[in-house]
Structure formats: C-alpha cells, structure tokens
Design a protein around this nucleic acid. Structure first.
Length: 483
DNA sequence: ATGTTC
C-alpha cells in the first residue's frame, strides 16, 4: 500500500508520485489534492489504480487524478490518462461503464421569487415528463435503423425530430456528435437495451435539478453564459443508460483476447486494453463513440422534456421567460486530441473517467461565445448540496490534459451508504430545508446520501487553488428529481 | 453506473 511519505508535495494543491516509485511505471502520477483529500484517497485503491494506469503502453506523462477521485473498475474515477495516438492503447475501464456520462445546464430568466409557489408543480411536471429509474423506458421506441441514426448523429438526430435548436447544438461539446461512430461495432444486445431508453434519466447519481444561481464569482464569464444571480437554472446529469453499459461490458470481455494477442503486460486484469491502431482498439473506439452520441441525444431529449414541463407550469403565470442552453459536457469519455507536450504538438487519446474536459480560452473546439473566456465546466454536487459552474484555463491545458474535476466524489460505497442511511429520512430532511424532492426509490436515495460524498465546495476549492479551473458560479438546488 | 449475481 502506498503511504503519504511516498509522495512528493508540489504545492498545497498538488502532489506527485515519481515514476521511480514502482518499477513498471512508465510515467509519473500527478494528484490535484490537498493533504486532507489525499488522506481520504489513501483509504481506497484509487491511487494504486492511477499507478497501474501509469504502466499502460504509450502513456504520456503525467497520469492525472482529481480531488474527487475514488476507486473504480480498474482505473480511478477522477482519473485522466493520455496515450499516444495511434501507437498507444485504449482501455474501456479508463473511460467507464457509463460512456459519456455528463452534465447539461440550461439557464432561465425566471427569478426564484416569481416561481416559488409553482415549484411543487414544476417538480411534478419534471417528474412526469422525464422518465427515471433503473430500466426505465421513455415515450420513444426506436427501430434498429433509427438507433443506428442516433449513434451516427448524436444530438443532431433530436434536431431533425424538432427536439433541439441549432443553438442547443452549438453549446454542446463537439456539437453533440462525435465523428467516427459506427453502430456496426455495437452488439445486438446493447442495441436491444438502448432502443427504448432514449430520453430517460436512469438511476444512481443521475438527476434533474432546478437550481437558483446563488453566487457569481466571474461576472464576465457568467454574462457570456447568461447566468444571473437569483434566476432559476436546470441541470441534467445522466449518460448512455443500458446502451453504453452493455457496450463497455462487451468490450471489457472482448479486449481480453487483444491483451494476450499483443502481449500487453498489465498489473490488473481490469485495466484491459488494446492498441489504438489494432482492429480491436478501433472497434471499441467506434462503439464507444456510438454510445457517446446516444448520450448527447439522450440529454438533448431530456432537455426538451424539461422545457415542456416549464412551459406547462409557467404558461398561465404571465411571466416572459427563456430557458437557454449554457453547455453540455461529458466526464466519462475517450477523445483523440492534440496537446502541446514539451513545446511540440502531440496527438493523444485522452481517457477521462470522472474528469471533465476543461479547455482553456481560445481553443478552436469552443463555440464563439466561449472562446474569450474558456470552456464551461459543469460540476454536479451530491444530492441537496451546491453545484458549480467553472471554466477551463491555460493551466488545465498545460498541466491536466485540458481536464478538471467532475463532482463531489464518493467516500462511502453504495452498500455502506445503504446500510448507514435511510431514504425516507433523507427525503424529509431535504424537504424541510426547502428542496422539493421526487425520488423513485428510497434505497436509491440512501445510496446518494450527501454524507456518502466528499464536500463539493472543497473539491472545487482545490481545482481552483491548483489553477486547473476557475470559479464562475455556485448553484443551490430547489428541486431534485431522482430515479 | 447497470434489466444492481447473464
């Protein structure tokens, strides 16, 4: 087990594990943590998993972990690993089971005071229009051909169906559609699971939240995003549902043979991978991109449903209002990107698992509205606590592969949380603190108890202190919809 | 996270 004295302290917000720590490490590991969060991380296997990632063929210095890190399947949630393209490897476990799990934020022009007495109705309407829960199905049942179109087109598919605007797409990572998706590389079983789940929320830590903009930290960036203090905002946190989960399951199994065929030495079988330039690696990439596009489309359709709920509730209110997209960004994804390494451009596959892309100002991928300020980073907190809007910086580009944190990060396992907390009691406590809660499952609610998570404000303070993101706004929840 | 031990 690694001990705190095995790490080098770089600053109050940054630590390093040198590659000399273990013989099979190819590169160092950088941890963006305070001493307190480092001590929390030492309680599980997340740091060991980051060290294991530093042994991957083609990995480029450094492997990075974020302050919200915790143990995951083969690779820490909160981890970032860049591998040379196309000579390095790609690993499904370093992207996650919920491919393109991510967050979408919409900002309204409705002041909290004007909406207060309608919040209960709004919670009901959101709960009604946005199906949630494990295995939940939506109103859309796709044919195989339509599902293939969703895989290729992502959120653009929703535009064709009248459920998106061009502006929604512009304010979505990659305009809501990754190139290179190929539904022919997706199993029939995954497609079966995906056909009826488009436009559904799912369960676990996924949620739809109505927040009030509580505090602005960067006026210029907030203005560019249309965020105003005291106004309502809508946050959607979900991913690719059973579709992406099945694709990950399929390829974790599939790629075991590639590990043998290409003679890859792995410290942990769960870190299964394949060379990016192998047929196995390319097939996974094409399937992973299909799931990513499904998730972009899923969040787009959920936003469409949510707008219908707002329209229904505020129709007779006499209010003039808008609900415009701020941004949509993934935190579980593999992306082929060009980064500057030692003064040279290098093409890499950036694995982000529980880490949010955080491109700095001027990046060509950003929409014009955000080029001057940097990319919006959307950080959901644990249930009932704050959520944050941040922006990417020059430092995130230079030091963390254009990435930052993604949320609060668990400290207790789901099983432990279910034992320690009661869903009914949590719901009552949230309601008493003025948050309207709609939850499908009380045991699911217990798993998401805020006490099972780190303090999101402390996580944000750390990335902000380290310089790999800048604070824009803090949001406070008033409605929480859970599966 | 997940038709939560296909």
């Amino acid at each position: 087990m690694i001990r705190i004295q095995d790490l080098n302290k770089i600053s109050d917000y940054e630590w390093e594990i040198p590659k000399s720590y273990r013989q099979d490490m190819r590169v160092a590991v950088r941890l963006f943590v305070t001493r307190r969060l480092l001590e929390a991380a030492l309680q599980d296997l997340s740091i060991e998993q980051a060290i294991n990632a530093a042994t991957l063929p083609g990995v480029v210095e450094p492997v990075v972990v974020m302050p919200d890190m915790h143990q995951g399947y083969g690779f820490p949630i909160g981890g970032v690993a860049a591998t040379r393209y196309p000579n390095g490897v790609i690993s499904p476990g370093a992207i996650g089971y919920d491919i393109n799990c991510g967050v979408r934020l919409l900002a309204s022009t409705i002041p909290l005071e004007a909406a207060e007495e309608r919040l209960d109705d709004l919670a009901n309407a959101l709960n009604h229009y946005c199906p949630s829960g494990v295995g939940s199905e939506g109103s859309i049942h796709l044919t195989t051909a339509e599902l293939d179109a969703v895989c290729r087109q992502g959120a653009r598919w929703a535009l064709k169906k009248g459920m998106a605007s061009e502006e929604d797409l512009r304010r979505t990572e990659e305009n809501g559609c990754l190139e290179g998706a190929d539904p022919a590389k997706v199993s029939q079983r995954a497609k079966q699971r995906g056909m009826a789940q488009l436009g559904t929320l799912g369960a676990g830590n996924h949620f739809i939240e109505v927040d009030v903009v509580d505090q602005i930290f960067d006026g210029e960036a907030a203005a560019a995003m249309g965020l105003q203090e005291g106004m309502l905002a809508l946050m959607i946190h979900c991913g690719s549902r059973g579709f992406g989960h099945q694709i990950c399951t399929d390829y974790v199994q599939d790629l075991q043979s590639a590990v043998r065929r290409y003679g890859i030495q792995l410290p942990d079988r769960e870190l299964v991978c394949a060379p990016l330039d192998s047929p196995e690696g390319q097939n996974y990439l094409a399937a992973m991109r299909s799931a990513a596009n499904y998730a972009f489309c899923n969040r787009q359709i959920l936003a469409y449903h949510a707008r219908r709920a707002f329209e229904e509730v505020f129709a007779g209110s006499g209010l003039r209002w808008q609900l415009h997209q701020v941004y949509d960004i993934a935190h579980n994804m593999g992306k082929v990107e060009t980064h500057e390494v030692n003064g040279r451009k290098l093409k890499v596959c950036v694995h982000r698992k529980g880490a949010t892309r955080a491109f700095g100002p001027g990046h060509p991928e950003l929409p014009d509205a955000y080029k001057p300020i940097g990319q919006p980073v959307l950080v959901p907190g644990s249930m009932g606590t704050a959520s944050w809007v941040l922006i990417g910086t020059e430092d995130s580009m230079a030091r963390s592969w254009g990435s930052t944190c993604h949320g609060a990060g668990r400290v207790l396992s789901r099983n432990k949380a279910k034992k320690d907390f009661r869903g009914e009691r949590l719901r009552n406590e949230l309601e008493q603190s003025g948050i309207h809660v709609r939850a499908g499952s009380m045991s699911g609610l217990a798993e998401e108890a805020p006490m099972a998570y780190k303090d999101v404000d402390e996580v944000v303070e750390t990335v902000s202190g380290a310089g790999i993101a800048r604070k824009v706004a803090r949001l406070r929840p008033v409605i929480v919809i859970k599966g």
